[in-house]
């Protein structure tokens, strides 16, 4: 029992550290949000979108901008650890390294989902679609959880490569595509009036992704970061 508590305490400490860094620097979330906004605007001109946008396009717009913006946060989260060899210090801590994974994944989940939740009213405003619905927020959080846990795992891989600055999206996008497709489909379904129960197969696919990627983090994070 004390082992479990010590583990959770370690997860919490890593998470708290990331929140503190973000709070003091305020460099992650604002950058992600502005970047996501730019994609939202860019799409309007690139695809000649009309304001009374169809549900499918709004769903795609939300997830594409969020997925791109999230890679900025994921990259930054791990490169902060690399600067000044902070990662080595973190790994010297006498805890199971998967606790570091869950702490960082939790931090990334919070940052990206905050950006996503802020995007909901903005997309609603600019595209005259009401995205402010509770089931839609639930799908958003679940999708972000799956995406950021995979992203945290892969960022620990990409950081070790010579091409570290550009590698993460190349690794992350293809593996995350099934989850993103499911998230877009579920969001689109909700926007066109279906209920969560009708869209359960997409939700289960996202849920399976979230569970599998977190299990992969638990199993492999230690192996990825060993020296």
């Amino acid at each position: 029992m004390t082992g479990v508590l010590a583990y959770l305490a370690a997860v919490w400490q890593v998470f708290r550290k990331d929140i503190q860094v973000e709070w003091r620097g305020r460099q992650g979330i604002p950058v992600m949000l502005v970047f996501a906004l730019m994609i939202v605007f860019l799409f309007n001109f690139a695809l000649q979108l009309s304001p009374d946008l169809q549900a499918g396009l709004a769903a795609g717009l939300l997830w594409v901008s969020l997925a791109f913006a999230s890679t900025l946060g994921l990259n930054r989260s791990i490169s902060l650890e690399r600067e000044n060899n902070a990662l080595d210090g973190l790994l010297l801590a006498p805890v199971d390294r998967s606790a570091v994974f869950f702490g960082k994944a939790l931090g990334n989940f919070c940052f990206t989902s905050l950006v996503g939740l802020l995007l909901l009213p903005i997309v609603s405003l600019f595209y005259q679609q009401n995205l402010l619905r509770l089931p839609l927020a639930a799908v958003l959080l679940l999708g972000v959880a799956a995406y950021t846990s995979l992203g945290t795992l892969l960022s620990a891989l990409s950081i070790q490569a010579r091409t570290r600055d550009i590698l993460l999206p190349v690794l992350l996008f293809p593996l995350a595509l099934p989850i993103l497709i499911a998230a877009v489909e579920a969001t689109r379904g909700l926007l066109s009036g279906q209920t969560l129960a009708e869209l359960s197969s997409w939700v289960y696919l996202i849920l399976a992704g979230a569970l599998l990627f977190n299990a992969a983090g638990l199993l492999f994070f230690e192996i990825i970061l060993e020296e």
Binding site: L153, L157, Q160, A161, R162, L171, F220, I224
Partner: peptide
Amino acid sequence: LRSGLNTQETRARLGAVYAIV
């Protein structure tokens, strides 16, 4: 991924994790 990694050992270790995922 493999082409960006420097040593045979990291290529093998990280490649294996990636192959399993």
